[in-house]
């Protein structure tokens, strides 16, 4: 445990000195928190939806809007549209950090003395993984709480804002978020073990953000209904996927191959 803790602290001291990483880690959550609040400011006022009844809304909304009238349900739809954006934070941040931390060790040739210590591959990967996952999850949670606070001020409807803290979105933010982070970090570790440029690792890893973007677009266009069932399915799939990905990440991180192949 001491080794993992030391790796996490070392990673943060090193990685956050990289301006690009620091910018990504700080700017992305800020942008994802601020942008929806700005949109909400212009579109999410209660008076805009006065007179809207539940009959005016798509039928699947009724399952999500229990206890809300038509106008509140419309507001709820707008407010929650952006929550899936927060799901991108726990994917992108750990991918950026892990890409720089592993490939960075290769390029600065710090990996050889590290691998010559009794630290195990699992400890290295857990340490580096958590160094990416912890800031990502914290940034997601803080961003979400700021968004909820901002939405509360803008929408000024406690019924709607309280819905941001119902089990559906709590599961999404506090369970699916960290699981997505683990997925991001495992993918970044696998790619970083094979490439020698952090930017390449990050760009390849970036492809794996697309499913999250797809869900966001699916929800916005009405193709996907993000309800409790969907989030629980997502969590279940991610648990299985994370286990498989992390297993392969450990397998692919071959100390010997990494040492003898990198130039």
């Amino acid at each position: 445990m001491e080794r993992i803790k030391a790796i996490i602290i070392k990673e943060w001291r090193e990685v956050f000195k990289n301006r690009f990483v620091f910018f990504t880690v700080s700017f992305l959550p800020l942008m994802i928190t601020a942008l929806p609040l700005v949109i909400l400011f212009f579109t999410g006022r209660s008076e805009d939806f006065a007179g809207v009844t539940t009959a005016d809304l798509p039928p699947q909304f009724s399952s999500l809007c229990s206890g809300l009238d038509g106008a509140e349900c419309m507001l709820y739809f707008i407010v929650t549209q952006f929550i899936l954006l927060f799901m991108m934070v726990p994917v992108i941040i750990p991918m950026t950090i892990a890409s720089y931390s592993i490939v960075g060790e290769k390029t600065t040739r710090t990996l050889e003395p590290l691998l010559a210590t009794p630290v195990s591959t699992l400890e290295i990967l857990v340490g580096k993984g958590l160094a990416g996952v912890i800031p990502a999850v914290v940034a997601t949670w803080v961003g979400y709480l700021l968004y909820a606070a901002g939405a509360h001020i803008i929408v000024s409807n406690p019924h709607v804002v309280n819905k941001l803290f119902d089990p559906l979105w709590m599961t999404a933010i506090f369970v699916v978020g960290p699981l997505l982070s683990l997925m991001g970090v495992s993918i970044a570790v696998m790619i970083s073990s094979r490439v020698n440029d952090p930017r390449v690792a990050e760009q390849i890893s970036g492809i794996f953000v697309l499913p999250v973007v797809g869900i966001f677009l699916g929800q916005t266009t009405g193709l996907i209904l993000v309800n409790q069932e969907f989030i629980l399915w997502m969590a279940g799939v991610l648990v299985v996927l994370d286990s498989i990905l992390f297993y392969f990440a450990v397998q692919i991180f071959q100390r010997e191959t990494i040492l003898s192949r990198w130039k």
Binding site: A6, K10, T108, R109, T117
Partner: peptide
């Protein structure tokens, strides 16, 4: 193969933890 962003003491403390 030292960590440039860390101080001399931090570098050694990190390896002390590894060993």
């Amino acid at each position: 193969g030292l960590y440039d962003g860390l101080t001399a003491e931090q570098n050694l403390a990190f390896y002390g933890a590894m060993y």
